[in-house]
Amino acid sequence: MPEFRERFVEIASNARREQAAYKQFLLELLQAELADRDVRRQQRLVRAAKFPRSKP
């Protein structure tokens, strides 16, 4: 879970500052991870499709 490692401190600090419940903290952390996975999946699928590169 690379996004967990990358964003944990930031999200934890925000949760502490906003006095968020633990469930809210976990929800934000999971949402960040899922968003990152979606982006990486899209990138992987585009690479796998081997579309021709556009010429400038």
Rank of each mutant, 00 (worst) to 15 (best):
M1A: 13
M1Y: 12
M1W: 14
M1S: 12
E3D: 03
E3L: 08
F4A: 04
F4M: 04
F4L: 04
F4T: 02
R5Y: 05
E6F: 13
R7G: 06
R7H: 07
R7M: 12
F8R: 04
F8I: 08
V9N: 12
V9G: 15
V9F: 11
V9Y: 10
E10H: 09
E10V: 06
E10S: 03
E10Y: 02
I11Y: 01
I11M: 00
I11K: 00
A12V: 01
A12Y: 11
A12T: 01
S13Q: 07
S13R: 14
N14Q: 14
N14P: 04
N14W: 11
N14F: 04
A15T: 00
A15L: 00
A15I: 07
R16G: 15
R16E: 13
R16P: 01
R17S: 11
R17W: 02
R17D: 07
R17A: 15
E18L: 10
E18I: 01
Q19L: 07
Q19R: 14
Q19F: 00
A21W: 02
A21Q: 05
A21D: 07
A21F: 01
A21L: 02
A21S: 08
Y22Q: 06
Y22V: 12
Y22F: 14
Y22T: 10
K23Y: 03
K23F: 04
Q24Y: 06
Q24A: 04
F25L: 08
F25I: 02
L26V: 05
L27A: 13
L27E: 03
L27S: 05
E28C: 08
E28S: 13
L29Y: 00
L29A: 01
L29I: 02
L29P: 01
L30I: 13
L30H: 09
A32S: 07
A32D: 01
A32Q: 04
A32N: 09
A32H: 03
E33V: 01
E33G: 02
E33I: 08
L34D: 14
L34F: 08
L34I: 11
A35I: 10
A35D: 08
A35S: 09
D36W: 15
D36S: 12
R37Y: 01
R37S: 10
R37H: 08
R37E: 09
R37C: 08
R37Q: 13
D38F: 03
V39H: 10
R40A: 03
R41K: 13
R41Q: 05
R41S: 06
R41F: 10
Q42G: 14
Q42R: 14
Q43K: 10
Q43I: 08
R44Q: 15
R44E: 04
R44V: 01
L45H: 14
L45S: 13
L45M: 14
V46T: 06
V46H: 11
V46G: 03
V46S: 06
R47Y: 06
R47I: 10
R47N: 15
A48I: 09
A49V: 11
A49G: 14
A49D: 08
K50H: 13
K50D: 15
K50Q: 15
K50N: 14
K50I: 04
F51A: 11
F51H: 05
P52A: 05
P52L: 03
R53Y: 12
R53A: 06
R53S: 09
S54L: 12
P56Y: 06
